[in-house]
Amino acid sequence: MPQDSPVPLADRHAALAARVAASADRQAFAELFDHFAPRLKAHLMRNGCDAATAEELAQEVLAVLWTKAGLFDPAKSSLATWLHRIARNRRIDAVRHAKVRDFDDEEPMLQPQAPESAEVGLDRRRLEVRVGAALDGLPEEQRRLVRLAFFDELSHSEIAGVTGLPLGTVKSRLRLAFGRLRQALEALGGAV
């Protein structure tokens, strides 16, 4: 992994988001904007948006952070995960309606979840750390495929093209990797 453990970065982002929520702190927001806006733009472009649309959607996602930072709950996810979800829903809505509708207050990830029953609720922060550890613990080949799928955001057939592996092998190795992730969650106490 090229980066330090993701947790200090997530803590830094959570602290900045808290300042935005508490006092509309422009300096804190600008730091988050400079980190996330270019990354969201790149992410959206990897998923088929042209540069102008990607930039527009990325700005809309960051505008949600500015106006609704109080709804981000660091106990549930990292800020990166939260913004990724908002970006995905925006992109799907844009495809489905051909226009982005007004912000939906009922969007589940912006609402406090229904209280989870004690036996199923995993601590979300522990889950994020665990997923990172599970990813690092995968055999080299599986980790490479997961990175191509989730980090480079290639489709299965694109991965087959890049690696020279048959499509069926790509699918089955990704399934093995998913199985390992699910086992890691089980070990964490969830019934997955």
Binding site: P2, Q3, P6, L9, A10, F36, A37, P38, R39, L40, K41, A42, H43, M45, A51, A54, E55, A58, Q59, S77, S78, A80, T81, W82, L83, H84, R85, L122, R124, L127, E128, R130, V131, G132, A134, L135, V146, F150, F151, E153, L181, R182, A184, L185
Partner: peptide, 19 residues
């Protein structure tokens, strides 16, 4: 949620495109 966390981490780590 585990896969969401993975995707979020990917967003944090991937290079950006300047606005």
């Amino acid at each position: 949620d585990a896969l969401e966390a993975l995707a979020g981490r990917a967003l944090d780590e991937a290079p950006g495109v300047a606005l």
